[in-house]
Nucleic acid binder design. Structure first.
Lengths: 147, 147
DNA sequence: CCGGAATAGTCAGTGCCCTGACTAAATGAC
DNA sequence: GTCATTTAGTCAGGGCACTGACTATTCCGG
């Protein structure tokens, strides 16, 4: 015995929240473009010409994962990658025409999906929820810094 | 332009919360046993002799993922798997001696880790936080049912 | 100017997570 | 009792996410 109730463990709940989100994303936003792919497109929309490392910083992904996601977006011709003439280590990222169109389309759908996802909470609870998650994950990110 | 602030998207925040949790888990609970592996061990502790499908139900994992996680726990000799003599389709799962010991050890550490993870929130906020995540993910799980 | 440190990206390896197709076993309707 | 349906588990394939080792380029101190 001595088993624990996992529904009191925030880590376990975070994983289930993620699952719920992915489920809803596939149903209401896109079956082809995933949420992390959208996040990368969104970062490049905000700051065209970003390099991969900085994109990773913006969306909270490590270099390897960014490289994979970027690779997939390029394969689908939603993203372009060119060497920085100023710094031969960097690649500069930019959305293609189709990438920009896709981003706009998904932005609308993602907003609708967020409403459905948070529908079980009242509006003030929704704001509180977002605030609490943000505070917890930001605090934990600090612990990473001094590595 | 027309980029969106991802810190208002609960899905994105959920992913970051997961990252934060994994980071803390590795630092404070175990580098070998992952949180999903612990969840499976915990389910088997609560109900020894569970089959894989039911374990998946208890910890919110699909059959394929359970099979992988179970496989890794068996390789580490923390778990045993035997055919159900009553039903030749099922495998019954049970912790080994070492598995039970490991589960007890990690339970203590996980409790400490949860405190650290939630430390940025006041105690009433912590309860609220857990309640809100639970409500959102449970509601989304309902949407899966009628598949 | 040159050589060592730092930086951007890649690659291999591990683990989580899902879907869809498949196999083997059990069930149940006739 | 037999055959179609359901069920438990496996497997292939795709995507996310990390670490640690490696390459190429840039930067910086002397």
């Amino acid at each position: 015995m001595a088993a624990v109730d996992l529904t009191t463990h925030p880590g376990h709940l975070a994983r289930r929240l993620q699952q719920a989100h992915t489920l809803l994303w596939n149903a209401m936003v896109s079956e082809e473009i995933t949420s992390p792919q959208y996040a990368v497109m969104n970062a490049v929309t905000a700051e065209p010409g970003l390099d991969q490392r900085t994109v990773g910083e913006r969306v909270s992904l490590d270099r390897s994962t960014v490289a994979e996601v970027v690779g997939r977006l390029i394969r689908r011709e939603l993203l372009d990658k060119v060497r920085d003439p100023q710094d031969g280590r960097r690649y500069l990222l930019r959305l293609t025409e189709e990438g920009a169109r896709t981003h706009r389309r998904l932005t609308v759908r993602a907003a609708r999906m967020n409403q459905v996802l948070l529908a079980p909470l009242s509006v003030p609870e929704q704001d509180l929820f977002v605030d609490l998650i943000r505070r917890v994950s930001e605090a934990a990110e600090e612990l990473r810094r001094p590595v």
